[in-house]
Every structure is written in structure tokens, then in C-alpha cells.
Design a protein around this nucleic acid. Structure first.
Lengths: 157, 157
DNA sequence: TGATATTGTATTGTACACAATATATTTAGT
DNA sequence: ACTAAATATATTGTGTACAATACAATATCA
């Protein structure tokens, strides 16, 4: 897969933080979430909570499992997070009557209404950062590709 | 900075999870850390702890502040993390005699020795994922560029 | 149908991550 | 030297993340 020369390069450089793809992702991710924090703080939710709301604004109800699959999060993370969203009055948690293992998550009126308050949030951030639009799309594509590759490599796919 | 047409696109698509650059980063970052977990688990450390060790293998001692700057982490995260590394016997924490506000972090013999055990970790992961080497370098560069941009936009730079 | 495997959520425990605050120390300015 | 500002670490509290486990419900197959 790699030539001996390329492998040598990986061995030499692979133990320096700045060369690590994983660290670059790790730092970029936290910095990006930092940019959302003050804006989301105004409406009282966190970034992971915002991701859940985005999913529900697109389509509802959804089960916890479906939300977890879409966001790559497990129930140990989502269970308490969804309870906090319920406490804020933004969502309803209701056990499915057909299959009682499932918990259906739906929006309250207040949850629907919140969408208006974040309508121009992506635009605001986009302009703040000043990242070229073409770059933007291609980077997102490469990241999703990478995520898929790593995920597949893990599960032996 | 953006044309009206481009802004319209951002408004339309910006509220869908899959289009968000931030979510792509968030998911990629967590998935990449997942790939490290089983390998680092064998030697008993976590990914953020591994990043600290990488820095110290490059140069030591370093203050908590220096480590935090390099990794974009604050003392609230690093203080307990470093105490855990100390408890594992990998590092020493010693207050600076010149400036007693500083805590110098250095490696123990065991900490130095650990480097050998992770020598081929980057190579292992690299081959697991099968990501083209050219892509690798350019993606890391773009991510660091992005992190810098967001960081600068926040601090008003 | 009855045992078994699978699936989905909840719970517990450990480890980040960061805001807010407290405290101590050095540095600057007069 | 004295005071005020700035710097650095520690602590507390909230909110993720995830492994491990438990438990309940459905699906499957002999």
C-alpha cells in the first residue's frame, strides 16, 4: 500500500503532534465548537444539543437509536442529553407503543419555534470565518470520506 | 465577501447536519480517536494523554501553560489529566523555583520508555485506514489553516 | 411454543472539556 | 517599596463521551 520510502516518512514524522491528522481534526473540531458556543449560549443550548435539534427540524419523530446513528453517538451520551432537552421544554420523550424498547423523540411547540432563532446562524459563522465557499464543500466531502474510511477499517468492513 | 447567490445557498443548506463543516469535523475527530482507543488502551493511556506524552517526548520539561497552548486545552482540563499521568508514574510535576506560579512537567524513566511501545502506532493506523499519503499532508494543512482562521476570527484578529 | 440470540435503552463509572471563580505570584508603574 | 494589573494554577460545577453492564422486548429457529 505504501512504498518503503513513504513508510519511513510516516515513522519519522508520525510522532510529532503537528503532523498528526487526528490532532488536526481534534483541534479543529474543538475550535469550531468554540465558535458556536457564544451564539448557541444565547438560546441556551450546547453544540451536541444543537445537532440533535437540527435532525429533528429536518424530520420527526426519531428514535434515540436513529439519532445516535446519524450523529455517531451512543445511548450513554444521548440519554442524559435528551433528558436535558426535555427539561428545557424543547422535546418530548415517548415510548413507542408498537415496540416498547423504542423511545420516540419529537419537538414541542417551543422546540419548533427555536428554529427561527438559529436561521441565520450558519451564515453568521460562515462570514465570520471567511472561508472560501468552494473549499468549504470539498473539505466537508473529504472529512465525510475520511470518517467513513476509518469507521469501515474499524468494523473490518 | 459572498455573493447574494452564495449566501442564499448557505441559508438553504446550512441547517442540514450533513452540510455542516463543524459536524464533519466533530464526527471525524471522534471517529479518529476511536481508532486510537484500542491501541492506546493496551498501554493504559487515553488520546489526550497520548498528545501530552508526544509533546514531552519532543521536548521537556514544559509548563502546564505551554502544554495547554500547544494542544488548545486549558488548566481545567490539564490539571486533572496530568495528575492521572503522574499517578501512572509516567511524569513528574514540580513547581518552578524561579517562578512559583509555574508547574514543570517532566518525564519519568517509565515515561521515556513508553515511547518505544508506541513507535509504530502511527504507521499501524495509517495502513489501517489506507488514506493516500498526498491527501494526508494536504488535509492536515487545510485543517491547521482552518483552525487558525476560526481562532483568529474569535479573538478579533 | 420455548429457548436463544439480538436489539434498544438505561445506568454506572471514568475521563475529558470548558466556564466561572478563587488564590497566589510576579510584573509594572509610581 | 507599594499598589494595581497581569499571569498561572487550582477548584467547582455542568455537560458531554464512551466502556461496561443490566434489563426488557422482539425476533428467530428448532
Amino acid at each position: 500500500m505504501l512504498t518503503e520510502k513513504e513508510l519511513e516518512l510516516v515513522r519519522q514524522e508520525g510522532l510529532k503532534v503537528d503532523n498528526l491528522l487526528c490532532f488536526a481534526l481534534y483541534a479543529a473540531s474543538r475550535t469550531a465548537v468554540d465558535a458556536y458556543r457564544p451564539l448557541l449560549g444565547k438560546i441556551g443550548i450546547t453544540y451536541p444539543q444543537y445537532l440533535v435539534m437540527l435532525l429533528l427540524w429536518e424530520q420527526e419523530p426519531r428514535t434515540i437509536k436513529e439519532i445516535g446513528t446519524a450523529l455517531y453517538l451512543d445511548s450513554g451520551t444521548l440519554s442524559p442529553l435528551l433528558k436535558r432537552l426535555e427539561k428545557k421544554g424543547l422535546i418530548n420523550r415517548q415510548r413507542d407503543s408498537q415496540d416498547e424498547r423504542l423511545v420516540n423523540i419529537s419537538l414541542t411547540g417551543e422546540g419548533h419555534a427555536l428554529k427561527e432563532q438559529v436561521r441565520d446562524l450558519p451564515e453568521t459563522l460562515f462570514c465570520q470565518i471567511g472561508w472560501p465557499l468552494e473549499d468549504f464543500g470539498s473539505l466537508v466531502k473529504r472529512l465525510h470520506d475520511l470518517t467513513g474510511r476509518i469507521y469501515a477499517a474499524q468494523t473490518g468492513g
